[in-house]
Nucleic acid binder design. Structure first.
Lengths: 208, 208
DNA sequence: CACGATATGGAGACAGTTTCCGTTTGTCAA
DNA sequence: TTGACAAACGGAAACTGTCTCCATATCGTG
């Protein structure tokens, strides 16, 4: 998709205009603009808009893709510079911070993750992979429990994104992150049956 | 809303027909049916459908309301018969079980929780209150940490609901619950600054 | 049973989306 | 430079689903 398309000069120009306008609008809080009107606003015909971005989600994804890949490489950097468990924690907090800075990102991600038409969701999948890697590293060195998959963490992130436009979301999102980070650190006592009792063993054997 | 409306005989009959048909369809996996077609399928005019259920969400809420209040009273029962922390854990697992049994419930709840048009969301709020109560009880008796609000837990539930139609969701949802339950049990060492080190102190260090 | 209140159905107005195709523009080879 | 062809454009028109409105039918009560 990135390569393989020479893409004619005017086409690229239009595409960029569209993207720029979308960024501008998203940044100012307009998300539910009519698709038609958006085309006019950007100064192109409806047909053109549709050719470049067949759906609303395609546009949103394009707008936030670099944001998204930036986040993924941030994950990779953290993974290299910090112990695994801390890297994961840092990344998750960073994630919420990002959401806070770019209002539209939350909405977009929620849609992207929810999309079952798996055609466009690979932005979401990329994120999933980053989280999976962080988690795996933590499991490997024993600081994170091994009995929960990255999918569980993604579900939580999904929830955060989906609920992010509600009042007080920032604080609650942070709490949710705290919760799963601490949850991930509590290493399960072997052989313990599911629910029950002294759930979290002292995590990293931590304290004296 | 429940009381105060005598509601004429034929009206009630129609309402019930509508509800029954909706249940039937939801149970068979049809959620995105045209609203108009749905009316025809139930054998009433569009006007009638709209009078009884002004929006798609209103219908969904009506269909699942008893399911929902059942869940809330289940929460109350658990709270009375178990120590707080365990009651919360049990409830959350029960919640996922419910989702699994009634496919449509997840979708409905996700919508309900997301709805900012706070008119109809009181089903979601009721659930929120139930969770808040469970949590508060746990905080009171010292088995659950006091620094995260019910909102955080609701976010996670939201995420679970929103992602529930994906493959393997059941297992991941269970993991997510495990995560927050353990997270909630890890009592924060006082004065510790946010992220970092030995997050989870031994939780239910609590009980002797 | 007659009358007012209540409910019904479905045609049609409406809003947003998407397609389609005649016209314009860019690109490349001669 | 110019000609020819493919690629891209724009916007009118068709479509799709939602929602309103009101003439008509039905209920229930004095």
């Amino acid at each position: 998709m990135t390569t393989g398309k020479p893409l004619r000069a005017d086409a690229r120009r239009n595409r960029d205009t569209l993207l720029a306008k979308a960024r501008e609008l998203f940044a100012s809080g307009c998300f539910d603009l009519r698709f038609d009107d958006f085309a006019r606003l950007a100064g192109v015909g409806t047909g053109t808009l549709y050719r470049h971005f067949p759906t609303r989600e395609a546009l949103a994804e394009a707008v936030y893709r670099e944001e998204l890949t930036a986040m993924c490489s941030c994950a990779r950097e953290l993974q290299e510079s910090l112990p695994a468990a801390e890297a994961l924690a840092a990344f998750l907090r960073e994630f919420v911070s990002h959401l806070h800075t770019h209002q539209g990102l939350a909405r977009t991600l929620a849609t992207l993750m929810a999309t079952r038409s798996d055609a466009l969701a690979d932005g979401g999948r990329e994120l999933g992979r980053a989280v999976a890697d962080l988690l795996a590293a933590g499991v490997e060195d024993g600081t994170l429990r091994g009995d929960v998959g990255a999918g569980a963490v993604m579900m939580v992130l999904h929830g955060i994104c989906a609920a992010y436009d509600q009042p007080g979301a920032r604080a609650e999102a942070d709490s949710a992150i705290t919760l799963i980070v601490d949850g991930l650190r509590s290493v399960r006592p072997l052989g313990a049956s599911h629910g029950q009792g002294g759930g979290s063993g002292s995590a990293s054997g931590v304290a004296p």
